[in-house]
Amino acid sequence: MRALPKPLVLAGFMTMLFLYVPVIILIGLSFNASAMGVTWKGFSIQWYEKLLADPSIMDATINSLIIAVLSTFFSLLLGLGLAIGMEKWRKGHASWMNILILLPLVIPEILMGVALLMVFVFLQVPLGFGSIVIGHMVFNLPLTVVILRARLRKFDPIWEDAARDLGASSWNVLTHITVPMLRPAIVGAALLSFTVSLDDFVVTFFVAGPGSTTLPLKVFSMIKTGLTPEVNALSAIMVVVSMACVGLSWLFQSQAYSFSIKHDSSS
């Protein structure tokens, strides 16, 4: 490959800097000994120690994890069925389904949050874990379906034919052929859903109730009383965990079996 022109390399570098400088500064300051924010007074991990000692933060972390796991699980369950169904009956109603399933991803989150709150109040659903899990599924489900369908498109129906011919019932085809072959996409979708759920603020803000404070909500309430280094430390942890999840998700999706079945034009 030809070497890129220097100005382009510089532009690319600047873009990355633009994206990551805030995150780097945040992580850096979380190790600052100073309690006053932006002036460097030496290296310290005291804020992390303080963080771990704070029971309300631990509660919020556990809440966040429970909600992320549940919304991921139910999104996968529904998403798998939906993705397989849409791929199998692609010629039928799948095209408008395709648009409808993606819509929640582009609807402004604040609208979605308000709308969900209205629905829950109208249906008298108590606000709390349940409402947050359902709220998160509104964006996790489309995400899961998009990722699974991308993988399913490379899935050759001849494998299902072969399995059925070898004695597999529809259920066996699903459990022995379809799901194992989708595994990289399933793991990838799960990690991504998990991350998005863990980081969500807007929808959670609207549909959360007492006793269901998640980490992003906790961060928000902490900065209302001022920017403390503790928030920096908490944010730094969340950034690292999220990036690790997204990285793993990407890794799983790119890991693939060879799908190199050629099709000849014979009857």
């Binding site: 050759d156 059925r164 011919d165 597999a168 079996y257 099709h263």
Partner: peptide
Amino acid sequence: DPPHARPVNMVFQQYALFPH
């Protein structure tokens, strides 16, 4: 009879081996 209930088996054109 569905395929899995028939006493026949098939060798597919591109083999359709299960890659996993």
